[in-house]
Structures are given as C-alpha cells and as structure tokens.
Design a binder for these strands. Structure first.
Length: 280
DNA sequence: TTTCAGGTTGAAC
DNA sequence: GTTCAACCTGAA
C-alpha cells in the first residue's frame, strides 16, 4: 500500500529528526538518512526531510497536521525564549527544529509509566511488543492498544514483554481508567490535573509532567529528570533542592516552560556530556 | 562485576 | 514532609 503525499512544510522550525528524537515520542523508526515513520494511536505517517521542505506522507493528513502542531508559531517562541538568557539562546538555536507533538492522552499515560527509570531503546521495544500483542490491526501495523485491551491482559504478559516491575503499574492504571473519563483532566488547570495524575499507579512527578506536556498540551509544566537536574546544577542558580527544580523552571519560563525543557534536554544530551560529568 | 538508564513506591524517620 | 532502599532489564 502506497501513501499519498499529504502536505509539505517549511523545515526551519520543523526538524524531523530533532522532533522525533528529543524523547517525547517512542513509536517512530528511522528508515534511512532522511526518512522516518511515525505512529500515533492507529495512525501512520512517513516523513521525509527533503532539505528545503518536510514532506508528510499519510492517509490521515488532518490528524498529522494537528499532531505536528503546525498551527503554532515557533519562530515567535524561539525569539521569546532566546531573549531570556545566553544559555537559553544557545539551547533554542540548537533545538529550534523541535515541535511539541500533540499526542494521544491514553498513549502518553502508559508510555511514560513505562519510561520510568528506563532508557529510550528499551522503552521503544516494550511499547512495540505491547502493541503487537494487544493492538488492533491496521493497514500499517498494530495500533496502540485500547484501555480495555490493556486492562484485560494479565500482569504476567507485561513482565514477559520486558516491562519488569512496571507490569503492576500498567495493569493497575489500565483498570483504574476503565470507568474513568479522561476528559475531566482536559477541563482542569495544570496544577489540578497534575495532582489527579499523581494518584495513578506508576505516575510520579516526572511522569505526570510528561503526560501533561505531551498528552494534555500544557506548556506551563517542566518535567525534571536526571538530565534536567544536571542542566540546573551546571547552568542555573544554585540553592534549590531537587524537588524544587521543576517549580524553579516553571517560574522562570512561564507558559513556555515545556518547550524550554525540550530545548535544554536536547541540548544537554548532545553537548553536555562533559559538563554533566564534571558537575555530576 | 558494577553502574546507569529520561523514577516511583512504600516504609521509616 | 523528607529520605531511602528496592525494583526489571540490558548495554557499557
């Protein structure tokens, strides 16, 4: 089955590789030097970097236009963020091709529960196996499983698929969500939605912030993982305990905190190895 | 053989 | 409310 060219975009603020490889999405694969495939829910797209433009091949153009957040003016955001400090100017310049994807809420909840204390490669493998086992068939492979399918599977299955001790979190949260209306989260402000997410099994502060940012499109949150702790200690004022770092950055960056987090994360992972080790 | 990887949990201060 | 060990797994 061949896919039609659905739409093309300007690449200045849309780097396919940076957007897909900055840690916000797990269901993608690099097919060649300039070609990726992306999955979300039961949808599929192939995206190519053609140099002077980005081409998106998919049967679900409308879905992926929204998915890639094409209505947001990233040039304005980069300009605003760059003015904050020299470090942010550098990070934004490096990561300006990153777009915050508008992903599926349920898919984000389970993906980031799996991500806890885990690395990207393994997270991808686990999610792919879960989709293969429990997802509906689509013309381009398996879809991300429904909450019903996730809840119906035995805990042992997730263990076998490599989830380890997170198996219980997946089952418990899936069962909890069976009779839960996720739309109530949409209506809450970020602080209340965060508090609610923290009651889900396997969801702590970092995972909750990732769900808010990637699944609920809340730009005013700042997920703090080991890398952002290194960023804080290397480049920003001292004196906060680790548990206060997220609040510190939220106050500093306001409504663009989430995007700043992506810029800093991607920047630190690429260039900050030495600094990170030196600071520890 | 350890350590670490994009943390959370539950118990014990 | 804070600190702490324990926790699956696999690659370095």
């Amino acid at each position: 089955m061949t896919l039609p060219l659905s739409f093309s975009c300007d690449p200045e603020y849309f780097s396919v590789s940076d957007t897909l490889e900055c840690g916000q999405i797990f269901r993608y694969r690099k097919l060649s030097a300039n070609e990726y495939e992306v999955r979300s829910r039961d949808k599929y797209a192939r995206v190519t970097d053609a140099g002077d433009r980005v081409d998106v091949y998919t049967a679900d153009g409308e879905y992926f236009r929204n998915f890639f957040d094409l209505d947001t003016d990233y040039a304005a955001k980069v300009a605003r963020i760059s003015a904050i400090s020299p470090v942010m100017k550098q990070a934004a310049e490096y990561g300006k091709g990153i777009r915050i994807l508008r992903q599926d809420l349920s898919e984000m909840i389970f993906s980031f529960i799996i991500s806890a204390n885990n690395n990207i490669k393994r997270i991808q493998q686990i999610i792919e196996r879960i989709c293969d086992e429990l997802g509906e068939e689509t013309p381009f492979g398996k879809a991300f499983p429904s909450i019903q399918a996730l809840a119906a599977a035995p805990q042992e299955l997730y263990k076998r698929l490599g989830a380890g001790y997170r198996d219980k979190y997946i089952v418990d949260t899936a069962c909890r969500l069976l009779d839960y209306d996720l739309d109530v989260l949409t209506g809450m402000d970020s602080a209340h939605a965060r508090k609610e997410l923290l009651t889900f099994s396997g969801v702590g502060p970092k995972v909750a912030d990732c769900i808010l940012l990637f699944g609920l499109r809340r730009g005013d949150v700042f997920p703090v993982d080991t890398w952002l702790k290194k960023v804080y200690h290397a480049y920003f004022e001292q004196g906060h305990r680790d548990s206060e770092i997220s609040t510190f950055f939220c106050n500093l960056f306001g409504e663009d905190a989430g995007l700043c987090q992506q810029y800093l994360f991607y920047f630190m992972r690429k260039y900050g190895q030495n600094v990170a080790n030196a600071v520890k």
